[in-house]
């Protein structure tokens, strides 16, 4: 028997487990609506007061579209895995994986993918409806190839986001009282990723700094693929950057976890 069936198996279990939380999912969809409303009024006020049609390179319609799309993309790619993994480390649930002939990273990755599959599909459908509606309303045209690239970008950003969470969660090897730490990093990562505003809002310095970090490739980039801001060459470059950051974060997480494990196993350090 090959070694892959076990990962397919946890993937399926993830799908099944996520179905148990349908209501939770529906509520989270509704809760995403409120921050969108707040932003809608803020941006309406901002654009309304000034005469110029553009802010940070976004027209009013593009900004509203970005806000909604980014909120939905955030819902899709945030995995909550940092909490899960950190509590595994903290309360010793990691032990049960240590004694099994399986790989913790692989099991968690495929569980997450399974858990996300259902939401991913539903959210994508919601997103396409939003795009279709706003595209007509604000006369924003989105080419079909962008839609295809968007799905690919979303899949990559889900994996990239998992790797970021997985790396951050390793902090639990050193700190034990950390629930607020993850509240903080979670929010920070979302903001830096462009989940609240497009990153141009932070100004030239910060946004050029963010070019050298992986965060913007999780929310900002896919959001701009779908709302038609990026040209196809920029999309290709973005996708390649996503792949690069996935590779990079994979190596970083391996390193951090190796050091963390030494501490966990009581090797000192």
């Amino acid at each position: 028997m090959s070694i892959y069936p076990k990962y397919i198996r946890v993937f399926k279990l993830g799908v099944q487990a996520s179905m148990e939380y349908r209501l939770d999912f529906a509520l989270s969809l509704i809760s995403a609506f409120f921050p969108i409303m707040i932003q809608y009024y803020i941006w309406t006020a901002v654009y309304g007061r000034s005469g110029s049609g553009q802010f940070f390179g976004y027209t009013y319609g593009e900004m509203i579209l970005y806000t909604i799309v980014a909120a939905i993309v955030t819902k899709i790619v945030t995995t909550n895995m940092d909490h899960v993994i950190a509590s595994d480390i903290k309360d010793g649930a990691l032990n049960k994986y240590l004694v099994q002939p399986a790989n913790y990273f692989g099991l968690k990755l495929f569980t997450m993918l399974g858990q996300k599959l259902f939401f991913f599909t539903v959210m994508l459908a919601v997103l396409f409806l939003v795009i279709f509606y706003f595209g007509n309303r604000y006369a924003i045209h989105i080419p079909l190839e962008n839609l295809v690239c968007f799905v690919a970008a979303m899949a990559l950003s889900l994996i990239l986001n998992f790797l970021i969470s997985y790396t951050i969660a390793a902090i639990a090897f050193w700190l034990s009282e950390i629930s607020y730490f993850f509240e903080m990093t979670g929010l920070l990562v979302i903001i830096l990723s462009g989940g609240v505003f497009p990153i141009e809002v932070f100004g030239q310095t910060v946004s050029s700094l963010l070019n050298y970090l992986p965060f913007k490739y999780t929310i900002y980039f896919p959001s701009n693929v779908i709302n038609g801001k990026l040209m196809s060459s920029e999309i290709t470059e973005g996708l390649l950057m996503q792949i690069f950051w996935i590779g990079f974060m994979f190596l970083v997480s391996k390193l951090v976890w190796r050091i963390g494990f030494k501490k966990y196993l009581g090797l000192g350090g």
Binding site: P5, K6, Q16, Q100, A102
Partner: peptide
């Protein structure tokens, strides 16, 4: 039953 089946795959 699901967890037990998963162990079947993990332990081959």
């Amino acid at each position: 039953a699901e967890s037990i089946l998963l162990n079947r795959y993990i332990y081959q």
